[in-house]
Amino acid sequence: MEMLETPLSKPSEGSAGITGYWRTFKPVINKSKCVKCLLCWIYCPEGTVIRINDSVDINYMYCKGCGICANECPTKAIDMVLEEEI
C-alpha cells in the first residue's frame, strides 16, 4: 500500500505571507550616520535587518515596520517614513 503524504510543514520565509504589507512606517537607513554598532541587527524581532559583514540593510519584503531599530539606534541613523511618502 502506498504511504499517504504526511501534512508536514516545510521551513520557509514568509510563513504569514509578505509581511512587509503590514507596514505603515518604513525604516530608512541613513548610511552616513551609521556607526556599524549592529544594535538594529541584534534587536530586530524578525531578522529583517540584514547584516553584510559589519554594515546593515533592510529586507523590506518582510519588515513589519515595528520601529524598534529606529528607536534603539544610538545615532538616530534610521528614520521611520510614512509608506505613502515614498
Binding site: 520565509e13 504569514a16 509581511t19 524581532p45 529583517t48 519584503m61 518582510y62 515596520g65 515595528c66 520601529g67
Partner: peptide
C-alpha cells in the same frame, strides 16, 4: 525565519 505571523 522572517515573515512569520508574530505581531510587529
Amino acid at each position: 525565519l522572517s515573515g512569520n505571523p508574530s505581531c510587529p
